[in-house]
Nucleic acid binder design. Structure first.
Lengths: 401, 401
DNA sequence: TATTTAGTTTGTTGTTTGAACCAACTTACA
DNA sequence: TGTAAGTTGGTTCAAACAACAAACTAAATA
């Protein structure tokens, strides 16, 4: 498609809106300079956006220079509307409500043990209806759902933990609420979170990979600022990789997540120590006590992860690889161990390996980003969001992020 | 950057030119329909392009319908100019001259055994000067160089087979010829060839991976129609992957290409059979004779490749994976063997595994595409080229492609 | 001749642009 | 303290320009 008349203003409008989004409070003149658009054009577009109440003026900025009129600072109107974002976990449903610029105003975790997919969807619908935010121009703008499985075109094509019974979450929510609905793989949303909410890097990252290690192992891949899904949404399912070169019996090849996932490690420890129950805090505690079974299991875990990280770095050569794992988060020694082992492997100028900060709300916030992109029609370009949870999760320490 | 006034016409001009490129002979009205641009706009843009002699009218098309004026067909002007494209091999330098639309008019292979990089560059410069094509509007439009190594931003950062001595091929050629010069990794150019020259698929492929198995093993990755290079041009160096999970001694981890590359397999056979010399045709012949050493080595080779292909398919989930390998090309049984073993591995709706057709000239033609893109300033969008070698390589059977 | 389709011409519309202008601020200086 | 000069932000408005729609010409079929 070429540029016909409508698309021009449309695109420039989105570019200006994006500048206001990512540039925080910003003046018209600065937008004009950033976009190489005439300032009168920017003014005209601002007036349109302002008429639609998408953006608001917010007092004057500083004239730090040699004098001259102070700029009028512009920002996204947080009262324009909000998104509601879900994460369907194994035994819980997480919900977060976010204003347009990302600030969370609501968070809740529901226990869904024993729920089937119909009950979960009913709970989602009920929750969306209850999460009204007052004084909004538009109200609900979009809904996102993080799914632990494979998703393609808003359809869940593979769900190892929850039985989807051929129910389409997308259809159910779309018919109920007439706003954009996004169903997306959890690892992809975590990667989106890292891209749009993180402040952990000064340099701009074009390509990042998030390796999410929980029940299984999956990678969320951002290439050229966009989620890379592959042909059927199956890209990054690196837990299914085969590392055992058992040449004589290819049929017996086993995927790596069968022994390298957190669940596999926990299961191993439980078996060896003949335990019924075991959680990550307990593993961490046993590890601190130098329990030999746990130490050995963790050491193997690190080696597996290191190899996977190394091969992923080689395949994708991203700017950084982020690890999202409760085990690694709970045992402080693990990340340095993995990094040390990684650095022993051949190669120069190795990829940065980092711990994903703020993993607890990552998929929800990533979903907020995806839903907001969709709601504003800015699907091609990256946005940057406010990281502010204090209203929704008062006891959460944001400084740690 | 937003759309300022200059960029609009510029972009539409490129869109029209691209239509003419990929749409073969095409009429103004068809372009207008394809691009959703008014036909008068298309006419105006055509006149501009025609004034610059980039495109030419070529007689009338058919009016297959119920009557009406016949359309005037338009095509790219093959006499506008040409590109010169090199492949620096281990012991040879390949050169091809191509008209704007891809047709090869010149091909030569030079033996460069014993040459250092200075001599190779001197030979390249001499060759470009001699490859004048007559009656060209612009003459030389661009130069491409395929390199077996890692390239980033037109700089060779790693060259395992040729000593680059800190010489910049890019600088040498750019100062000598004032046209765009492109230095690019060989596997990336082969992937570009597959994208832009291949006729082997009806469906449009967004994402493809070419695995090039020669002295080493590297992948050329096309994501969303563009070469994916990664942060430092190192993406797809999958030969460096580690598959041995020797947990106790990570230092001893060995990269897969040390035993899965063609050179490794040939070396193994040579050792076991105590041979001094061995080429692919001889291996093929020994394999047909059921030579046990060769059969076993080839069987292992297939298993290694299958595993690499499987893991690559899992990581990237591309539309198809193409294999470029002399061994697989020379022994007809190999591809079916790999495919069969691949299909035994778990997973549904598996990625297509295919043999790259026309491997011999793939990097040159991929370079032609890259150089032409650059010369026309169409870097964001895909072009499709004419596959015609008969003028340059009369004895080559194009039907096999 | 009626109808259909391709392409051109011409005047209209919408968008960016540049220049002039107004607004508001800082600094210098009387 | 007051005022003029200089600087920067933002608005207004006519001009430029690209895409567009409509009317037209050209050339085909039935």
């Amino acid at each position: 498609m070429a540029l016909n008349k409508q698309s021009i203003r449309n695109l420039n409008e989105k570019s200006v809106l994006r500048q206001i989004f990512i540039g925080g409070p910003i003046s018209r003149i600065q937008i004009s300079r950033n976009l190489d658009l005439n300032k009168s054009t920017v003014s005209a577009i601002f007036n349109d956006l302002s008429d639609r109440e998408l953006v608001v003026e917010m007092g004057q900025g500083e004239s730090t220079q040699v004098g001259g009129r102070k700029p009028v600072m512009i920002k996204v109107n947080p009262k324009y509307g909000f998104t509601v974002n879900f994460d369907i976990g194994f035994h819980h449903l997480d919900v977060m409500g976010n204003y347009l610029e990302g600030t969370a105003f609501f968070y809740q975790r529901f226990d869904t043990t024993g729920f089937d997919i119909h009950q979960i969807i009913a709970l989602m619908i009920k929750t969306v209806n209850s999460v009204g935010a007052a004084d909004m121009v538009q109200g609900l703008l979009g809904i996102s759902v993080a799914v632990h499985g494979i998703v393609f075109n808003n359809k869940v094509t593979y769900s190892p933990f929850i039985d989807m019974e051929d129910v389409s979450v997308y259809d159910e929510l779309t018919t109920q609420f007439e706003v954009p609905v996004i169903i997306e793989n959890e690892a992809n949303l975590v990667a989106t979170f890292q891209r749009d909410f993180s402040r952990d890097s000064h340099r701009t990252m074009n390509n990042i990979v998030v390796i999410s290690i929980h029940k299984g192992i999956g990678a969320g891949i951002i290439i050229d600022h966009n989620i890379y899904r592959g042909e059927h949404g199956e890209a990054g399912e690196i837990g299914r990789s085969i590392y055992t070169m058992n040449l004589s019996q290819p049929q017996q090849a086993e995927k790596i997540e069968n022994y390298a996932s957190q669940d596999a490690i926990l299961e191993l420890i439980k078996q060896r120590k003949k335990l019924k129950q075991l959680n990550f805090a307990e593993v961490a505690s046993l590890y601190e006590q130098h329990d030999s079974v746990v130490v050995e299991a963790i050491k193997d875990f690190c080696s597996y992860i290191t190899t996977m990280v190394y091969n992923t770095a080689i395949s994708f050569n991203p700017d950084a690889i982020y690890l999202s794992s409760d085990l690694i988060e709970n045992i402080a020694e693990l990340l340095p161990m993995i990094q040390a082992e990684y650095n022993q492997l051949p190669g120069e100028g190795k990829t940065d390996i980092r711990l994903l900060k703020g993993a607890k709300f990552a998929s929800l916030l990533g979903g907020c980003s995806a839903a907001t992109h969709q709601a504003l029609g800015i699907t091609e370009q990256q946005l940057k969001f406010n990281y502010s949870l204090k209203k929704a999760v008062p006891d959460f320490d944001e400084q740690a992020i």
